[in-house]
């Protein structure tokens, strides 16, 4: 049930434009596509609030919430992006006391379950970025599932961000 609410809210947000709420928040200039920016869906697989951090480095981690409403188990296998030479699925671990990310072949998501890519957990690692990422920018990214690809906009947040700036909003 809560997922249905989420979907309904997202659709509502799409229709209403919700420009008002975001104007109040003062965070974005491109409101017309806002809901579309933060939500992508294909074959019952939804990706919500994709984000990454501003950086001058060559790598960045992309986080997202993935909901599997498809009725079958799906596998998140990786991603691709025009701004990076490589995009791969990685998992956090402590290696000798230092944070480290290990490459993962895939992660399955059972039907009706949610997979959250978040700091100190799963992430899509972009390597060899072709330009530094600035806060407020958006980059294009395509998630790869065994069931198909899911293109999406990734919001670039502050360098020290811990979550998407719209997380908690009812999309």
């Amino acid at each position: 049930m809560p997922k249905l609410v989420t979907v309904l809210a997202a659709v509502l947000v799409g229709f209403a434009g919700v420009a008002i709420a975001h104007d109040v928040a003062g965070e974005h200039g491109r409101e017309e596509e806002d809901a579309h920016h933060h939500l992508a869906e294909a074959n019952g697989v939804r990706a919500l609030h994709a984000w990454t951090r501003a950086t001058d480095e060559k790598t960045a981690l992309v986080f997202v919430t993935i909901e599997n409403a498809s009725g079958a188990e799906i596998r998140l296998e990786g991603a691709e992006s025009g701004v990076a030479a490589r995009a791969e699925l990685v998992g956090f671990r402590l290696k000798d006391g230092e944070p480290d990310f290990a490459r993962l072949p895939f992660v399955p998501v059972k039907p009706g379950h949610v997979l959250i890519l978040q700091p100190r957990g799963l992430a899509i690692r972009l390597s060899d970025l072709d330009h530094p990422l600035a806060k407020g920018e958006e980059i294009e990214l395509e998630f790869h599932f065994d069931s198909g690809h899911l293109p999406m906009h990734v919001q670039v947040e502050a360098t020290d961000a811990a979550q998407h700036s719209h997380a908690g909003h009812q999309h």
């Binding site: 998992g91 949610v114 957990g121």
Partner: peptide, 9 residues
């Protein structure tokens, strides 16, 4: 390692 993430979910 990947299975840990699936299990967590």
């Amino acid at each position: 390692l990947w299975a840990n993430y699936a299990l967590r979910s």
